[in-house]
């Protein structure tokens, strides 16, 4: 008997091919809804640190596409962890796995319902991991999720992480998006 997860999740893979559109580069790989099927998948794909630059993994609840435009995401935002180049070799894979375990295990108390998914961006200038939530105005849910996320990754209290509304990221005029919340 397998151990059912609260939600069914979908793994998406993005590979940057400049001859194609952003949406054409995004592929749904597979879905899983048990602990055992999660590991069967995780143990058989490349760890994030071995992906080429420009690739993403996204793990989202079934029915939510990993893009701002999805109706579950359009009013939401993300808790963002930015990593240094060195951290790719020391912490990236553990951080990503712990992020996945937080979301599929519903580790955010009553606020797990606000979680849409998680994304890892592998980039030459610095990798990023984010948890996306559905409503950037739900202060209580957003801050609780942020605190649990930090805890789940074992980040010390002195490290501050920020939450950015997708609407602000989408309309920014430079590479800096203001933080709506920090924990």
């Amino acid at each position: 008997l397998k151990h059912p997860l609260e939600n069914r999740w979908a793994l998406w893979f993005y590979k940057n091919d400049k001859s194609k559109t952003w949406q054409e580069n995004l592929r749904l790989i597979t879905k899983f809804d048990t602990v055992e099927d999660f590991w069967a998948l995780y143990n058989n794909i490349k760890v994030a640190s071995k992906l080429s630059s420009g690739c993403d993994y996204s793990v989202f609840k079934d029915g939510i596409e990993p893009m701002w435009e999805d109706r579950s995401n359009k009013c939401g935002g993300r808790w963002l962890i930015t990593l240094s180049k060195q951290q790719r070799h020391t912490e990236l894979d553990r951080f990503w796995l712990d992020t996945l375990l937080c979301i599929i295990g519903e580790g955010f108390d009553v606020y797990s319902a606000d979680v849409c998914g998680a994304v890892i961006n592998v980039r030459a200038k610095g990798d990023k991991i984010a948890i996306w939530t559905t409503n950037a105005e739900n202060r209580e849910a957003v801050t609780c999720i942020g605190r649990k996320f930090k805890e789940g990754l074992g980040l010390p209290a002195k490290i501050v992480i920020g939450y950015q509304a997708h609407a602000d990221t989408a309309t920014k005029s430079n590479s800096i998006t203001k933080n709506k919340f920090v924990v």
Binding site: P4, E6, E106
Partner: peptide, 20 residues
């Protein structure tokens, strides 16, 4: 009830054989 699993519980299944 809600199916909540903590990190240690989930990690315990990583290398479980699929069939026993």
């Amino acid at each position: 009830g809600k199916k909540q699993y903590d990190r240690e519980f989930l990690l315990g299944f990583q290398f479980m054989p699929a069939c026993v």
